[in-house]
Design a protein around this nucleic acid. Structure first.
Lengths: 349, 349
DNA sequence: GTTAGCACTCGCAACTAAAGAGTGCTAACA
DNA sequence: TGTTAGCACTCTTTAGTTGCGAGTGCTAAC
């Protein structure tokens, strides 16, 4: 059964109303406030169909309908009209973005700030990462039986190393295998590709080596890569969560902050997202912790060689059209700003 | 009227019970659980006295008593027996502190982490600051009518500068006066003394200059000083707030986060605190936002030349004895660690 | 196919009642 | 005179109870 024009209109009205009020939407409300020219009873019938088709849900028998993730996905893909920002809005945003900003890393930070202010959501931004450098090899050099120096060499000749403490002693042979394995998996990858890669499965047979890799070596590896990439994560608008009805329950707020607090995880997940405007809704986020949230990210580029991300995280009930417009406007502006100034980093000393 | 031995014991019991349970304490509870050998009625009489003396309060007529800030202050000053950590506890903490830490800045970060884990409070730490360098002069160099370069020169010859955007145009004369004023006030002060200083009052007569100073120049000045001092603020255990009954109300939690979120403010306030173990209870904190909180900080030293802070923030109802012991143990350990390794910062590159 | 009407469900807020914890006071006791 | 038992009283908390309102689903009429 395909969605009729009318069903689409009703669904759109329900989404619009629910996004605005956060309350389940009843048939009368739709009939009254959206001029569809049909009675509540008819709307009820259509709603019943939409529910059967999986676009609506029912908190309980006698309450209005709530859009499902499937509905949001349909909305985002098919129904959402791009909300053009007015010239006034644009210049207001631009003023906020550029005012008093002298260093470009500050611009990224500020973009996250502006984004959170406008959307009333939690915003984040990744500072530009050097995209083109690729890994040459990884080495693990034993110092004593529980201390290892992790060394990463890139094709451009950059060398980074960090000291890693192991939770249990390890013999050189294991280290050699690990290093070989890592080199095999990572070499030729760009630094940011390496960050996206999940090589743990590649030696699943050796549980012990995997555990050590995962618990001790991987964190150091990621951190070093991030340093080489020179990526910074900025977050803003964390407090906004408190004004969202979905999170009025303290337990929900708590679990939201538990996600948000693991900066490394967030960073890795952000880097792993594809380029361009990406919207993931509820369960589409791999992470079970994010199954109540939607995440919107977009990419900005600098000379095609460096790349950063900007986005928001919030409840699935969000103003997708507004948020995407603002995110797009901001990423465009950042890209432009980097072009004009050529990445000047301010001065000190 | 002086506090009798018995009143002290009752007060101590009330504090102990309230700190544990967060519930107002009744006379029966004290009689039953603390072997004072007196009946509830007698305890009620004593409580009544203690309330009149300002050590206890009464949420409402028919509920138990709650210790006042005055009571906590008395407890901290006179009654608190130092809680010696057991050898087991010490080694457990030390293990957590040192395990897997290779760089000393990580040690500070880790200390904040360990502290929050043990106390279940929000912990913070300031990385070591170079204490001895003093300011020579401050200069404000106009670039255009709204852009100024703020330059700070220290006696050791270190120069830092930052570009500041002004909210309104300013003439050179004003800048000259401002710079002269700042130099007059700050020169000869160590960097951290400068951070503590409040010079705004020194030109209160010129409202406009003050406003500009406060809104535009001061933030840049502080940030630059912090950079010169190389101070970092680490925070941990922010989430712990959610398990404290006092903050089960979402509005309270929100306002707590609003305080915590202003990192610069916190940093400045921490730096301004005296050295040694400092406990401020409720209203003793200058900041009205902190009037429900107690703050405990202690200082660690490196060669007497550098100095950092470690502490917690939580509800006035906290285990002062435990927290002070742990804070002390940690600061001692950090000081020792810096002595042994001589401030080696790890290696990279 | 659409709509009016109606019985029904469910959540929510207001209200009531009872229980429980604790106090303050009085009078008796050692 | 200090201590204690007893008792009336206060106030909060919790569990029902009730009524209202929003909304549905079904049926029958248009």
């Amino acid at each position: 059964m395909d969605l009729t024009e009318r069903k689409l209109k009703i669904l759109q009205a329900i989404i619009a109303d629910f996004v605005r009020t956060a309350e389940p939407v009843g048939s009368r409300t739709i009939s009254r406030n959206y001029e569809l020219g049909i009675s509540p009873a008819t709307i009820r019938n259509e709603m019943s169909d939409l529910e059967e088709m999986g676009y609506l849900t029912h908190p309980h028998t006698s309450s209005g309908r709530v859009p499902s993730e499937k509905a949001y996905r349909l909305y985002v893909n098919e129904m959402m009209s791009k909300k053009e920002l007015s010239q006034d809005e644009k210049s207001a945003i631009a003023k906020q973005l550029y005012d008093n900003v002298t260093e470009l890393d500050n611009l990224i930070e500020r973009a996250a700030h502006v984004l959170s202010e406008i959307t009333n959501l939690t915003a984040f931004a990744l500072s530009p990462a050097k995209e083109m450098d690729t890994l040459r090899y990884v080495n693990l050099i034993p110092v004593d039986d529980r201390t290892v120096v992790l060394m990463i060499v890139s094709d451009s000749g950059k060398v980074s190393n960090t000291t890693v403490q192991l939770e249990r002693p390890v013999n050189e042979e294991t280290l050699r295998i690990l290093a070989k394995n890592m080199t095999y998996n990572y070499s030729g990858k760009t630094l940011s590709e390496a960050l996206k890669l999940d090589i743990i499965k590649s030696f699943r047979e050796d549980a012990e080596a995997m555990a050590m890799f995962h618990n001790n070596i991987m964190p150091g590896f990621l951190k070093t890569l991030e340093n080489m990439l020179n990526v910074n994560l900025y977050m803003d608008g964390l407090m906004n969560i408190f004004s969202i009805p979905e999170y009025k329950d303290i337990e929900k707020a708590k679990s939201f902050f538990e996600i948000i607090n693991r900066k490394e995880d967030i960073m890795k997940k952000l880097i792993a997202r594809d380029d361009g405007m990406i919207i993931t809704i509820g369960g589409e986020n791999q992470d079970a912790d994010l199954s109540d949230c939607s995440v919107i990210t977009a990419t900005y580029h600098v000379d095609g060689k460096m790349v950063g991300k900007l986005g928001v995280i919030g409840p699935t009930r969000m103003k997708y059209d507004e948020v995407t417009s603002v995110v797009e406007f901001l990423t465009d502006n950042i890209s432009k700003a980097f072009m004009i100034t050529g990445g000047d980093k301010g001065n000190d000393g």
